[in-house]
Design a protein around this nucleic acid. Structure first.
Length: 841
RNA sequence: GCCUGGAUGGUGGAAUUGGUAGACACAAGGGACUUAAAAUCCCUCGGCGCGAGCCAUGCGGGUUCGAGUCCCGCUCCGGGCACCA
């Protein structure tokens, strides 16, 4: 092959490197606040620096880059940053394994992954890059912590905690998945510990209510998941007096969603962990027996305990409470099905109207009292085989008899409030967020313990409390902080005497709860960010990431946004951090997750080496719509590569036809050959479809398909083109359109051909093309003709033909005549410009 | 159990408000070019039927001139929540 022809081949490797260097040298993607321009903040969830990017990252960032480049070309001032969620346990595990340091491992991985990421050619403003493990980042988090502490939104509490024995740390409720650690899948144990909590429950109502602001911008299922997680239920808190006080305690509180069934209460059940159990049982004859039951249930595995196969089990305490309405004696039981940390850890037993209570009563021979019956039914005649939970009227309920039970809920609560025995209330499933971690590689909690002053917050001017890097990582995985004197021994911020530093670090989800705000002012060393930058850039207009973060990260970020707003650190009118959310599907291989153990991992770097980044990006976007999972296909990426070669070849082979021309640039008045007119129409159709598919529906696959069609049309059209000036313009315009529309997907190739076409400026700075409706017009339109709903012919009529004309043309068709022969035409339905349906019978 | 999303050719997927089901690709088969291969180009490609045509969007009903799309009842698969009182 001659040198000349070789030079004309599409060789992505060098081409892509060249363009990446040019973008970087020209700081093409650096952005600044510009109040005169509309902004658009496009953000992909930042990666954990695990060591190598995988196809999931590629898909995520390819989607984000298309959105960012597309919005930029539409004229928005686009911010598109990237950074590293760099604290976390894997760094410590790797350090133990490699006998290195978590910092070394983490920073090394960041360098590797940054280089890999840069080869993808995404339009990131790298000048805003952050790594959450740097003091310049976490110092602001420590400041937030102190402010939250001041506000009472951070507090310390001793409580049974989720403890992962393998990670040697506690876990938030959100991090326990089916009783297992979310990261290592060890069985989570319960351990009594004093921990730091963020009062997320104080924002429960707002976190729930504001989900409605996200309607339309967020996937419905993510909203549902958040609603479920917050789990608000309306009901009443009811007070039952103890027959005999236990110490100072004279009454028991229960939460119920069914105050209307109060008169059906025949027993009360406490969780075995209820704080009253021990004092209540002390000195009772059955103390030993009951406490043995408590110990047995408490020691049960969390997973088994939560299993729905677990049989309901309980034990009578011997004590009684007094029914707040009837004054009846109600026996007090313990039950294994009562959850200690929901509601008050005590429930009223209404066997007639709650299936759990029904099962429990059957097993232990407890009374069943029917107090709700379907309208018009006689309670005496009812023999229950299961609890009745439907609607009805209240019976055997004294003053409330005859009341519809829905009204009764309110009536009972109101009445008890007047007697001091209850009130209407709400319960949340959401728990406060335990942010203490007994780990080394995390942000230090900026407090100290002084023998004289007790717990003392660090002074703000002393921040950051720097995580010491000169520590020895122990083999057993325990944090080295408690045994590092240079860290532990500190000066009391209050009295200046000797003090001990808090050695727990913060949950890494704290870092990721506000990073999107730091990007707006990433190099600010006087504060976390400035109000000017925040007000301009926030909220994030489009957030993109995996659905696995639907609860944890997204809930925490929403919470932080509201807290920072209320502390005056975020704009007062900013309530939600992410206006629109796109949850992308996974990249699978052979129907399953890619994993090292299965040996089915497809590495992005190998693929880029082989095909180029443009091809990898193109395939990831073309294979499926972004929300859906898709299977990696070696044949599929070949196809993507073939298409880009096809574009390249078309350009090279028709180089003589091409003149510098912007997209949709051929004037509408141009008289061109027949092939040219239809090509021009196709071009504008493609612009319309691609613009709508990318901008309104995130259907990158169909947008790409549309461009493929245009390229196919150009291949066909070139036969018909005569080489006249007009033809040249039409063809050049189509080529410019292909390059412009494709440039967000395959930026390198498009830049190269754009330049070769004779344009001075980068295609990135081109305005997104606008289609001309007039160019879509055609002289004749195809019309489908049905007889009784079945397609019988396709005819062509002049554009703008009226209904009568279409009907006439349809009935004149030979095939139609054949099908209606001998039958009466009962009706003709005409859809102008599209379809005629002749109804015969 | 409750809440969700989904099921369309051999495959990934199109069909945007009810209006020509299968766009665009992948795979497969046939052909052209070539000494040969690769690359490229052309043709076929849901099923049945020689054909006119008939049947087809998980299954069964319904609404409608017309249903992949709407309604009712199921089946299967995925995700979330769950003795939450």
């Amino acid at each position: 092959m001659s040198q000349e022809r070789k030079a004309e081949r599409y060789e992505p490797g060098g081409l892509e490197r060249r363009w990446q260097e040019r973008w970087e040298a020209g700081s093409v993607f650096a952005v600044h606040r510009d109040e005169t321009r509309r902004k658009c903040y496009v953000l992909e969830m930042f990666p954990y620096p695990s060591g190598n990017i995988h196809m999931g990252h590629v898909r995520n960032y390819a989607i984000g880059d298309v959105v960012a480049r597309f919005r930029h070309m539409q004229g928005f001032n686009v911010m598109h940053p990237m950074g590293w969620d760099a604290f976390g346990l894997p760094a410590e595990n790797a350090a133990i394994k490699n006998r290195s340091h978590p910092a070394t491992w983490t920073y090394g991985n960041i360098d590797t992954m940054r280089a890999q990421l840069k080869r993808l050619g995404c339009s990131y403003d790298w000048s805003r890059e952050i790594a959450t493990c740097r003091p310049e980042y976490y110092r602001w988090e420590q400041l937030f912590f102190l402010r939250l502490l001041e506000k009472g939104l951070v507090y310390r509490k001793k409580a049974p905690q989720n403890w992962c024995p393998s990670c040697h740390t506690v876990l938030a409720n959100e991090q326990v998945v089916e009783g297992l650690c979310w990261r290592c899948e060890s069985r989570v144990e319960q351990k009594e510990l004093t921990q730091w909590f963020l009062r997320i429950t104080a924002y429960g109502d707002e976190l729930l209510d504001d989900l409605s602001l996200l309607e339309g911008g967020w996937p419905e299922r993510v909203l549902t998941m958040q609603r479920n997680w917050i789990g608000k239920s309306h009901g009443a808190s009811l007070v039952f007096d103890l027959e005999e006080p236990v110490g100072d305690v004279k009454s028991l509180e229960v939460f119920t969603t069914r105050p209307d069934t109060l008169c059906g209460v025949t027993f009360l059940t406490l969780a075995p962990e209820h704080p009253l159990v021990e004092p209540l049982m002390r000195g009772r004859p059955n103390e030993a027996e009951v406490m043995a039951f408590v110990a047995r249930i408490r020691d049960m595995d969390r997973l088994d305990r939560q299993s729905d196969l677990l049989e309901k089990e309980g034990i009578f305490t011997g004590a009684h409470v007094v029914h707040p309405l009837t004054g009846r004696r109600v026996p007090l039981w313990l039950g294994n099905f009562v959850v200690a940390d929901y509601g008050t850890g005590a429930v009223m037993g209404v066997p007639a109207h709650d299936q759990r209570d029904f099962d429990f009563a059957k097993r232990y021979g407890l009374d069943i009292r029917v107090v709700i019956v379907p309208e018009g039914e006689d309670p005496a005649g009812i023999a229950l085989t299961e609890a009745y939970t439907g609607p009805g009227v209240m019976v055997q309920s004294g003053r409330f008899d005859g009341l519809p039970n829905e009204e009764g809920k309110r009536a009972v609560a109101t009445y008890l409030e007047s007697t001091g025995h209850g009130k209407a209330t709400v319960q949340f499933r959401l728990r406060d967020w335990n942010i203490s971690r007994q780990r080394y590689w995390g942000a230090p909690i900026p407090v100290a313990y002084c023998e004289k002053c007790g717990l003392v917050p660090e002074r703000e001017e002393n921040l950051p409390v720097v995580l010491p890097l000169d520590v020895k990582i122990s083999e057993d995985g325990r944090s080295p902080l408690p045994t590092t004197p240079s860290f532990v021994d500190c000066v009391c911020p209050s009295c200046g005497g000797p003090a001990r530093r808090e050695t727990d670090t913060m949950d890494t989800f704290v870092e990721s709860s506000w990073y999107f705000a730091r990007y707006t002012d990433a190099r600010n060393d006087r504060s976390a960010f400035s109000m000017e930058e925040l007000s301009y850039w926030l909220p994030v207009d489009q957030y993109i990431g995996g659905v696995e973060h639907a609860i944890l990260h997204l809930l925490y970020s929403r919470f932080f946004t509201k807290v920072l707003r209320d502390m005056g650190l975020f704009p007062a009118d900013l309530s939600e951090p992410f206006t629109c959310l796109l949850t992308q599907g996974m990249v699978l291989k052979d129907g399953g997750k890619m994993s090292k153990s299965k040996g089915n991992v497809v590495g992005p770097t190998e693929m880029i080496d082989r095909y180029g980044a443009d091809t990898v990006r193109l395939f990831c976007l073309f294979a499926a719509p972004p929300e859906r999972d898709f299977d990696w296909s070696d044949a599929g990426i070949e196809g993507a590569s073939r298409f880009l070669n096809r574009v390249w070849r078309l350009f090279v082979e028709e180089r003589d036809m091409l003149v510098p021309m912007v997209a949709c640039g051929a004037g509408s008045g141009d008289a061109v050959s027949e092939g040219g007119t239809s090509l021009r129409r196709k071009e504008h159709q493609t612009v319309k479809k691609a613009t709508q598919d990318i901008g309104e529906r995130f259907q990158f696959n169909t947008a790409i398909a549309a461009v493929m069609e245009l390229v196919n049309a150009m291949y066909l059209a070139r036969e018909a083109l005569a080489g006249t000036e007009a033809d040249r313009r039409v063809f050049s315009s189509a080529m410019a359109t292909v390059l412009t529309l494709l440039s967000p997907v395959t930026p390198h190739l498009c830049e190269e051909l754009w330049e070769r076409m004779g344009h001075g400026e980068s295609v990135y700075h081109q305005p997104w093309p606008v289609w001309d409706e007039a160019a879509l017009a055609r002289d004749t339109v195809p019309v489908a003709v049905q007889v009784n709903g079945k397609l019988r012919a396709t005819i062509s009529v002049p554009a703008g033909t009226d209904k009568e004309g279409m009907e006439r043309a349809a009935l004149a068709d030979e095939a139609v005549q054949r099908h209606i022969k001998g039958m009466a035409v009962r009706r003709v339905v005409v859809v102008p410009g599209k379809l005629v349906n002749v109804v015969v019978g």
